[in-house]
């Protein structure tokens, strides 16, 4: 337990430092950091409404953050959560288009979200297969696949999947059967619960099962894992595929619960923020949830901050960037310190 808490220290420190830097930035632009942060906090946790909003914003970050955590744990760098998320949303949109109102709601949701997960998994599997079969660096492959996915969405929403009547480059609104139910009068939806469930499953899988153990061992030291008889390549492949499924699910849920339509700028870069989320969450599923909530709160609060304090919402990107920088620096520093003996 003490170790668990000790592991939180770098994350908390990174957040504190990042907030300090952004406070300085706010101050330099001539506003009061105090007022700005008060507005940010107000916007994030000031009311039940805003709390629900934080959860909603955190939802895709939890799932893509899990995707990142899972693949990084296996020692592979899936930078492709963005593309996998888009393909997931695309798969769900396509299933909804075909299924229409013929299927009853629970089945429609299972089919749609299943398709989303499968789409993301498939997109990730391409990169994993390229890596294992051809030795293609997965970072490059996944980044390329991100571009391809974006282009694919762009083409489809302007062509085959464009809404009936064809005014905007977007798909038809999902039939109501494919829409995730709300949990409260706010925008809180069932997808948030699904994301939390996914985190619990991932946590259990990683730390309580044999496959999870093998995956972590393979990620930390492939040579030793292989000598212990662990099928390193196979673990790696499935970690990657599962990672893609999480990201795909994120896309499906967002489409189903929030936007209901797929369009070109569907994702504001969740798949990239996910990397910060995963690292800040120290690659642990529970940590990812906490980190996602933090980023969700920043996102939700930034609008209020812009409105009431007059400080540009862009400041939160300073926080994003600084968090990663400080985490990397702290990690380095910690490693150097522990190398005494």
């Amino acid at each position: 337990m003490r170790q668990r808490i000790a592991e939180l220290v770098p994350s908390l420190l990174a957040v504190a430092l990042a907030l300090a830097v952004s406070a300085a930035v706010v101050w330099l632009t001539g506003s009061s950091p105090l007022v700005a942060f008060a507005a940010l906090l107000e916007g994030a946790v000031g009311s039940r409404d805003s709390l629900a909003e934080v959860a909603v914003k955190a939802c895709p970050l939890i799932l893509t953050g899990l995707a990142v955590a899972l693949s990084f744990r296996a020692g592979t760098w899936n930078i492709g959560a963005e593309g996998q998320l888009l393909v997931g949303a695309l798969a769900m949109a396509a299933v909804a288009q075909v299924g229409g109102s013929m299927v009853p709601r629970p089945l429609a949701l299972v089919l749609g979200l299943g398709a989303a997960a499968a789409g993301g998994a498939l997109w990730a599997a391409i990169a994993a297969a390229l890596k294992l079969r051809r030795g293609v660096n997965e970072v490059i492959a996944t980044i390329m696949l991100n571009f391809i996915a974006a282009a694919l969405v762009s083409y489809l929403v302007q062509g085959p999947l464009m809404e009936q009547g064809g005014r905007y480059p977007q798909t038809d609104a999902l039939p109501p059967e494919f829409v995730l139910p709300r949990l409260a009068p706010y925008r809180l939806h069932l997808g948030v619960a699904l994301a939390l469930l996914a985190a619990l499953v991932a946590q259990f899988g990683l730390f309580r099962t044999r496959h999870g153990f093998e995956l972590r061992a393979a990620g930390l030291n492939a040579v030793a894992a292989r000598l212990a008889g662990i099928p390193v390549e196979r673990r790696l492949f499935w970690a990657f595929v599962l990672s893609g499924a999480f990201a795909g699910l994120a896309g499906g849920i967002e489409l189903s619960a929030i936007t209901r339509r797929l369009y070109e700028r569907f994702s504001p870069g969740w798949g990239y923020t996910a990397i910060a989320v995963g690292l800040l969450g120290r690659l642990s599923p529970i940590g990812v949830v906490l980190a996602a909530l933090f980023f969700g709160a920043l996102d939700a609060g930034s609008n209020t901050m812009q409105r009431t304090a007059g400080v540009s919402a862009v400041v939160v990107y300073v926080v994003h960037g600084c968090v990663i920088l400080f985490l990397a620096a702290l990690e380095r520093w910690q490693r150097n310190r522990s190398q005494g003996t």
Binding site: F213, R216, A217, L220, N221, A224, L227, A228
Partner: peptide
Amino acid sequence: REGLVLEMSVLENFLLH
């Protein structure tokens, strides 16, 4: 490098077979 996963716990390394 080959016998242990240094970052893992003693307990986990006992299972590394």
